[in-house]
């Protein structure tokens, strides 16, 4: 029986661990999966330090140091097919957002002047130092499948694993977060952009209609919309929609402004101007990937490279 099971290895690179928790979060459904899958190496479940030969490999996190690079290569060698799992693995994710700061700034904030701990020195030579930039794993090893989401909702994980086990072709669903948001997109007289901390949004009305900048319509749905369902605008953690990724002229701020202008009395240029004040955060989850980094409407990667060069 064991021999018929799909052998699974997982590993985490520069990641928060949330993606591995999401795998465990399949709850009782994990038992269904365990009927078919033999988990060999998984940092949160097993004490296996090596990389035994496996059928499927799940890699979470991005590459920021020598260890990450080494682990990604080990996983690629040991697994027949490799899944980039979670936004960090697919686009660089949260570690990728660190590109908006220099390495010195990061070390200072994390180790020397961290407001929440008393650590006072950066780690010494025993630990690999930070590479210049964050690299999504598919720029280092070949990746067979991608599952975005920060982390992906267990519904999507379960469907993806089942598709793999059953040997059927996975079907890319490209609905946006709005598809699972319960709010009604009604036209309103709103004529002012609201900051996230202002007022209490109407629970049944789309946040855009109320003047809050919500990135739901420009974000791939791999989460079932928990944020807007709970009154918080979406910040795009699963990465941009397929349209934005594939078409160089489509951009988060113009797409959101177009829709928001149709739902409110705000003019598109006013919305764009307001959104540009927080431009650094729009692509924060995907800015390390080449698809976004080389987009003609996106300049952050270029600015950072210039700063790093000048150091």
């Amino acid at each position: 029986m064991e021999n018929n099971k799909v052998r699974l290895n997982t590993d985490w690179l520069s990641a928060c661990g949330g993606c591995h928790c999401a795998i465990v979060d399949l709850h009782e459904k994990i038992l269904d999966v365990l009927g078919y899958v033999q988990i060999q190496r998984c940092p949160v479940l097993t004490d296996q330090k090596d990389y035994p030969p496996a059928d499927v490999g799940i890699l979470t996190g991005a590459i920021r140091n020598e260890h990450d690079r080494h682990a990604a290569e080990k996983m690629r060698k040991s697994c027949k097919s490799l899944i980039a799992f979670g936004t960090c693995a697919v686009y660089g994710g949260i570690p990728g957002a660190a590109l908006a700061h220099t390495r010195e700034e990061l070390l200072d904030r994390a180790y020397r002047n961290n407001p929440t701990t008393e650590t006072s020195v950066p780690p010494g030579e025993m630990i690999d130092s930070l590479e210049k930039i964050v690299t999504p794993i598919d720029e280092v090893v070949d990746v067979d499948l991608y599952l975005a989401g920060c982390p992906p909702h267990p519904t999507f994980i379960f469907d993806a694993l089942l598709a793999l086990i059953e040997g059927r072709a996975p079907k890319a669903q490209d609905q946006a977060v709005c598809a699972h948001c319960q709010r009604n997109m009604d036209r309103c007289d709103t004529d002012r952009i609201q900051s996230y901390h202002e007022g209490i949004p109407d629970p049944s009305l789309c946040l855009l209609s109320q003047g809050y900048v919500c990135l739901g319509s420009v974000t791939l749905d791999r989460c079932l919309a928990p944020c807007p369902k709970n009154g918080v605008p979406c910040t795009g953690c699963a990465g941009p929609t397929m349209e934005i990724l594939t078409e160089p002229n489509r951009d988060i701020r113009t797409e959101v402004a177009d829709r928001m202008a149709r739902l409110t009395r705000l003019e598109q240029p006013v919305i764009i101007k307001a959104m540009e004040r927080s431009a650094k955060s729009h692509y924060s989850y995907a800015m390390a990937s080449r698809m976004i980094g080389e987009k003609s409407t996106f300049l952050i990667r270029k600015w950072i490279a210039e700063v790093e060069e000048s150091l």
Partner: peptide, 12 residues
Amino acid sequence: DLQFCRKKEAFL
């Protein structure tokens, strides 16, 4: 972006 279009086929 042709590079991404090819990648899109592999999205779960």
